[in-house]
C-alpha cells in the first residue's frame, strides 16, 4: 500500500498563487468532525495515467487549525465547508501525485475554473457528505469539466466524507471521452 502523508497546512506553500487558508481550515473542520488527526482517505483512480496502486492519503492538521475549524463550523454553511475542504484535498493530490504544476483560476458567471499553466488541462473539484450521491456527482462534474471554455482535457476530483470512511475519486479525461 502506497501511503501519502501530508499536513493539510502545506498546500499554501505548494500553491503560492492561490489563497487557500479558508480551505485548509474548512478541511480540518470537516475531517475533525469524523475523526482525530490524521484522517485516512481512500483514493479511487479512474483513467489516470501512471496511477499508483493501492494508494491511501493520510491528511493531518495541527491544533491551531482545528480550533479555527471549530469556529468556522459555527459560522459557515455546511455545503460551503464541504466544497472548500474538497479543494484543499484536491490541491494535495494535484501537487503531490499528479504534479500538475502551478494553477490559474478564472471565473465565468458564478463558476470558478482552475486550469494548469503547464499542460492543457482544467481541474474540476467537488465534494459531498452523502456517499449515495458520490458517483452521480463525479459523472456530473466530468460532464461540466469537459465543457470548459478552453476545450482542454480535464482532471476531476470528487471528495466524499462519511463516517464509514472518506473517499476521493480522481479521473483524467480528454475532450471526446
Amino acid at each position: 500500500m502506497d501511503l501519502l502523508r501530508c499536513r493539510i497546512e502545506e498546500i499554501s506553500d505548494w500553491h503560492p498563487n492561490l489563497f487557500l487558508e479558508p480551505h485548509i481550515v474548512a478541511c480540518a473542520s470537516i475531517l475533525s468532525g469524523y475523526s482525530n488527526s490524521p484522517a485516512r482517505i481512500e483514493i479511487d483512480w479512474e483513467m489516470v495515467k501512471n496511477k499508483p496502486e493501492n494508494f491511501e492519503l493520510r491528511a493531518s492538521w495541527c491544533r491551531t487549525t482545528a480550533d479555527k475549524g471549530r469556529r468556522f463550523r459555527a459560522t459557515v454553511q455546511p455545503h460551503v465547508l464541504v466544497e472548500m475542504a474538497s479543494v484543499a484535498l484536491a490541491m494535495v493530490l494535484v501537487h503531490e501525485v499528479l504534479a500538475l504544476g502551478p494553477l490559474d483560476v478564472t471565473v465565468l458567471g458564478e463558476k470558478a475554473d482552475y486550469r494548469c499553466l503547464q499542460s492543457k488541462q482544467v481541474v474540476e473539484i467537488s465534494g459531498t457528505e452523502n456517499l449515495a450521491e458520490f458517483g452521480r456527482r463525479h459523472t456530473e462534474k466530468v460532464k461540466q469539466a469537459l465543457a470548459n471554455p478552453f476545450n482542454w482535457a480535464a482532471c476531476v476530483v470528487v471528495c466524499g466524507f462519511s463516517k464509514s470512511g472518506h473517499r476521493i475519486r480522481i479521473s483524467q479525461h480528454e475532450i471526446g471521452d
Binding site: 503560492p16 498563487n17 492561490l18 480551505h23 460551503v80 466544497e83 472548500m84 490559474d104 483560476v105 499553466l117
Partner: peptide, 17 residues
C-alpha cells in the same frame, strides 16, 4: 497571472464565506 490568481482566489473565498 500569479498576482491575478492570488487576488481572484481571495475574492472567491470571501464571497463563498
Amino acid at each position: 497571472v500569479a498576482e491575478k490568481s492570488s487576488i481572484l482566489s481571495k475574492a472567491l473565498a470571501f464571497a463563498e464565506l
